[in-house]
């Protein structure tokens, strides 16, 4: 009973040509239907995803490159501006120095000029004073001479008179 069951083809008596044809047809139909309705769309979406991922990766790569180039640019800019600022400071310093020297020199010459003019004025005043004294001395001596001539005087009187006049002259001043 069991042995006959195990013999090849025991399930059917004779040749099952119909089964073969049916199996073949069923499998081919299944293949076509699945390709159209299941595997095709599934493969499509998988390909689409693959494409999408590839695109995303390349986009990310691009933006990364862009970002790094931007960073480089910014760094360059910062460096440049720092240099510029340094230059500006340097310039300002230099200019300040120059200005300071100029101001000092100007002040010095001004002071010199003032001193010169003051000296000159002093000199003038002195000369004027001397001239005035000289004039008065001259007139005094003329006066003294006239007085002497006017009356004979004793030596004592003469001396007294000169002293008087000198005193007078001192008081007159």
């Amino acid at each position: 009973m069991l042995t006959s069951n195990l013999v090849l083809g025991a399930a059917g008596a004779g040749f099952n040509g119909g089964d073969i044809l049916f199996q073949l047809a069923a499998f081919l139909i299944l293949l076509a239907l699945l390709k159209k309705y299941a595997w095709g769309p599934l493969m499509g979406i998988m390909n689409e995803r693959e494409q999408h991922i590839a695109n995303e990766i390349s986009a990310a790569e691009n933006s990364r490159k862009e970002a790094s180039s931007l960073i480089e640019e910014q760094r360059e800019l910062i460096k440049q501006s720092r240099l510029e600022a340094q230059g500006l400071i340097e310039n300002a310093k230099k200019q300040g120095d120059v200005q300071r020297d100029e101001i000092i020199a100007l002040a010095r010459t001004e002071a010199e000029r003032l001193k010169e003019s003051a000296k000159l004025e002093i000199e003038q005043q002195k000369e004027q004073a001397v001239a005035a004294i000289r004039e008065q001395v001259a007139s005094l001596s003329v006066l003294v001479a006239s007085k002497v001539i006017e009356k004979e005087l004793s030596a004592a009187d003469q001396e007294k008179l000169i002293n008087e006049y000198i005193q007078e002259a001192g008081e007159g001043r």
């Binding site: 099952n16 119909g18 199996q23 069923a26």
Partner: peptide, 12 residues
């Protein structure tokens, strides 16, 4: 002229 095993056909 072909033998069809209906059980096979059903299960396929």
């Amino acid at each position: 002229g072909l033998n069809f095993n209906l059980a096979n056909i059903l299960m396929i």
